[in-house]
Computed example of a mutant assay.
Amino acid sequence: MSRNIPNEEDLAGESARLQQLLYALGRRRSLRDPIAGICEALQCTPPQIHALLWLGQDGMLTMGELARRLGVTEKTVTGVVDRLEREGHVQRERITLDRRVVRCRLTEPGQKTYQRLDRLLHEAMGQMLGMLDGGDRKALFRILEKLVRRLEPSSPDGVPPARVRSA
C-alpha cells in the first residue's frame, strides 16, 4: 500500500484552505473554542485555564514544562502560576536538591476547579460533536488519532508524546 504523499504546492493550497476554514469557524460564537466561555464562567484567563487543564491531566509539572505546554516563556508562566497560587488553585514545590527546579501541582481546591473545568469542556465538546453525524465523528477521530500516532516519538524539543484518554 503506497502512501499518497502530497507535493509542496498541494500542501500550500490545502494549508491555506484549512487556515481559512478555521478562521470561519472562529468567527461563529457557537463554534468558538469551548474554553473561551469557560474562561468567563471561571473568571480566569485562557493561559490560566490551560495551566489548570495540563496540571489536572498530567499532574505535577516543572515551571519549564508548564511554560512549554502553554507556549509561553518561563517568565510569563511565573505570572500565570502566581495568580493561580494566590487564588489557591496551585502550589509550588521544590522536591529536588537543585533549588532552581520548581514544580507546580494542583491543590485540593485546584483539583475541584479542574474537575469542574473538565466537565464543562466535556459538555462543550459534546455539543460540537453533536453537530456532526456518526460518520463524520468517526472520520474526525480517525484523523486526530493518526496525527497523534505520527507525532508520538519524542519531538525535537524533547516533549514527551501526548497521552490520549479513551472515551
Rank of each mutant, 00 (worst) to 15 (best):
R3Q: 11
A139T: 13
E93G: 01
R17Q: 13
D133Y: 09
A167D: 13
A167I: 03
R27S: 08
K75V: 12
M128D: 07
L52G: 03
G126R: 10
L55D: 00
Q57S: 02
Q111F: 03
E14V: 02
D98L: 07
H50S: 12
Q20S: 11
G126T: 11
L121A: 04
Q20C: 05
A167V: 06
M63L: 13
S15L: 14
S154E: 14
P47R: 07
R3D: 12
V81Q: 01
R103G: 00
G71W: 09
R103M: 02
P6G: 02
L18D: 09
A124L: 05
K75G: 01
D82N: 10
T78M: 01
D10S: 12
E9A: 13
G126K: 11
M1Y: 08
E65R: 13
L70H: 04
F141M: 15
A167P: 08
Q48V: 04
Q91W: 02
L22Q: 10
E85F: 03
L18M: 13
R69Q: 10
Q57L: 08
T78I: 01
E40D: 14
R105C: 00
C39V: 09
P34W: 09
L147T: 08
L25W: 12
D82R: 03
L70C: 02
R105M: 00
K112T: 06
R68T: 01
C104V: 10
E152G: 02
I49H: 04
V90Q: 06
Y114K: 04
T62A: 06
L25V: 06
Q57I: 02
L151Q: 15
A51H: 00
P47L: 05
R99T: 08
Q115I: 00
A67H: 08
G56L: 06
K138A: 14
A124V: 04
G135T: 09
Q43H: 12
R165W: 11
Q57F: 00
I38F: 06
R83E: 10
L140D: 00
A41T: 15
R86H: 08
R17S: 12
R163C: 01
R69T: 00
C39G: 03
T76D: 04
E14K: 07
M63Y: 03
E9W: 11
L52T: 03
Y23P: 01
L147N: 08
R94A: 00
L120A: 11
L52M: 15
S2Y: 08
K138D: 07
R29F: 10
V101G: 01
E14H: 10
R69Y: 11
P109A: 04
A162D: 02
S15E: 08
H122I: 02
D118S: 13
P46W: 06
R100V: 04
V80W: 10
E123N: 12
E40H: 07
K138H: 15
H50N: 13
L61I: 02
D10H: 08
E14I: 05
E74C: 02
N7K: 10
G130H: 09
G37N: 10
V159M: 13
L132R: 07
Q111M: 05
A167Y: 06
N7H: 14
R68K: 13
T107I: 05
G134D: 14
P109N: 04
I38W: 10
D157Q: 12
L61R: 15
R116D: 00
L120F: 11
Q48I: 03
G26D: 15
